[in-house]
Design a protein around this nucleic acid. Sequence first.
DNA 1: GTCTATATCACGATAGAC
DNA 2: GTCTATCGTGATATAGAC
Lengths: 213, 213
Amino acid sequence: MTTNLESESPPASRTRILDRAAQLILDKGFAATSMRDIASSVGVKAASLYHHFASKDEIFTAILERGIEVMVTAFEQVEATSTSEAETLLREHVRAHLGSLFEFGPYTAAHVTTFHNAPPVIYDAIVPRRDSYEAMWAGLFDRLEQQGSLNASDTSIARLVLFGGMNSTIEWFDPAGVLTLDDLADMIVDQFWHGVGSANAAHSRRAASGGAR
Amino acid sequence: MTTNLESESPPASRTRILDRAAQLILDKGFAATSMRDIASSVGVKAASLYHHFASKDEIFTAILERGIEVMVTAFEQVEATSTSEAETLLREHVRAHLGSLFEFGPYTAAHVTTFHNAPPVIYDAIVPRRDSYEAMWAGLFDRLEQQGSLNASDTSIARLVLFGGMNSTIEWFDPAGVLTLDDLADMIVDQFWHGVGSANAAHSRRAASGGAR
DNA sequence: GTCTATATCACGATAGAC
DNA sequence: GTCTATCGTGATATAGAC
């Protein structure tokens, strides 16, 4: 390596600014996070941020985009290495999404918690990318359904409810606790796939193919 | 009735202010909603709001409290009229919670979407009430588990994931569409109770009591 | 690339007339 | 109970020195 200056107390790079800003926005929300807050967290004055970004909106937009990028990358990585068995495939995707929320910086978490009331200009700019990630999951669910692996009366709603459950974990799950993200993914997929109601109590509606549980 | 003055264009009552404020806060978030915004929506000037509330924080706190109050009332009403069958009871509770989100003003919806990054003072003031609502659900789940109706490896996590799924509906469900809230509650409980994985694909783990699905 | 200084504006809140 | 007028503060953003 020709230089090692960058290894200690780096100058305020775009990445460093975004890292800190994303954490603040996750904690306090976008509107309540000031440029002075971000600058202070980075260790510079507010005016210096404008050398790296044109506006506060641009910082927020970059964070939301990065959040999606993390999720998309995680999804594609599973697709590239997956087995064909339905439940296992879903488990890997759920684990990957949880990884996006907890393991790759605050970008995805900030995206999930703050997107829905972002300023309209930002919201509209991000929606297409967000839709494209959602389309990946919709495609996955379509495939599972066509295989006969999925039995929901409405797969879109089943997917959205699963998503809501996954995304809510950032509000209550502590990845440093006794349960690992693998454990959590297992529990979520178990619940989604098999249900948690006792078979005894519920010999109801779909008393079909003499199967499991 | 002795007077009917109050039936048209009422003076800015506390309730009317809170109604409008809750809707704005649901849409834009607390920090991005100004007293001028609220006043404009009510049809008065900002200074007039201070005749009814001491501060913006007080308005927000009142909205968050009312959101919980709506949920608690809905929960208690189900408890007071419920049958004993586990799945039906859960269905009624899920329907009641969805009703709180969609049918009783924007209070509960605003609570769910904006609470997590409320200013610390407000957050701390609301947490106890929020915990008491959560305790009601925890109690319900404990009862279901002791009956043998619930089969989750961790009932708290099962409950939190269900909650995440329910609460996410305010971001994507349109109660004016083809599906009713009853339909939605059915789908969510079906998914939670029975799972949506095909029995064929998943004769796995818990191949227990020759039951349903 | 970061700083000081500042322009401009919107915010929450108050005072006091009506 | 609502208004006009305003205070003090902190917001985003810019200008220009270093």
